[in-house]
Simulated scan of single mutants.
Amino acid sequence: MALFPLISNFQYDFVLQLVAVDTENTIDEVAAAAAHHSVGRRVAPRPDKVVRVRRQGGEAFYPRDAKLSDTDIVPMETLEFIFCDA
């Protein structure tokens, strides 16, 4: 377990956020941490959607159940958090 800083580029938010997560967090847990800083503050809640995660400018989403430590994400990388259909 290690602290892991990421940059959150959350859909519909105009602010990039520094988010500290743990290397043992799943991608869904990373998405929840990013949502905590944006949804309900500058981004309207979308309870009918799930938040998916991809690399900034990427097209493929990371698997929701993958552990952060098992991905190719590096510290301080910018990730996009996108609302998608469940």
Rank of each mutant, 00 (worst) to 15 (best):
A2V: 08
F4R: 00
F4M: 00
F4A: 00
P5Q: 03
P5R: 05
L6Y: 04
L6R: 03
I7H: 13
S8C: 07
N9D: 14
Q11E: 15
Y12P: 07
Y12E: 13
Y12S: 12
D13C: 10
D13A: 08
D13P: 08
D13M: 04
F14H: 15
F14L: 12
F14E: 13
F14K: 15
V15T: 07
V15C: 07
L16S: 11
L16P: 09
Q17W: 15
L18I: 10
L18Q: 12
L18R: 11
V19A: 01
V19P: 03
A20G: 10
A20V: 14
A20M: 14
D22K: 14
T23F: 00
T23S: 06
E24Y: 00
T26P: 00
I27Q: 02
D28K: 10
D28Y: 00
D28N: 05
E29R: 02
E29G: 04
V30A: 04
V30N: 04
V30P: 03
A33K: 05
A33I: 06
A33W: 04
A35I: 01
A35W: 03
A35H: 01
H36P: 00
H36R: 15
H36E: 14
H36Q: 15
H37D: 09
S38D: 09
G40P: 09
G40T: 12
G40S: 10
G40M: 11
R42G: 07
R42V: 06
V43P: 03
A44Q: 15
A44N: 14
P45K: 08
P45D: 13
R46V: 12
R46Y: 12
R46E: 14
P47N: 07
D48K: 15
D48N: 14
K49Y: 12
K49D: 10
V51W: 02
V53K: 02
V53A: 02
V53R: 06
R54E: 09
R55I: 11
G57A: 07
G57W: 05
G58I: 10
G58Q: 09
E59F: 02
A60S: 14
F61P: 07
Y62I: 06
Y62V: 01
P63Q: 09
R64L: 08
D65S: 13
D65I: 10
D65A: 13
A66Q: 07
K67T: 03
K67C: 01
L68A: 04
S69W: 00
D70I: 07
T71H: 05
T71Q: 03
I73N: 01
V74W: 09
V74M: 09
V74F: 10
P75C: 01
P75W: 04
M76D: 15
T78N: 06
T78I: 06
E80W: 04
E80P: 06
F81A: 02
F81L: 05
I82R: 05
I82W: 08
F83R: 01
C84I: 15
C84Y: 15
C84Q: 15
D85Y: 12
D85A: 11
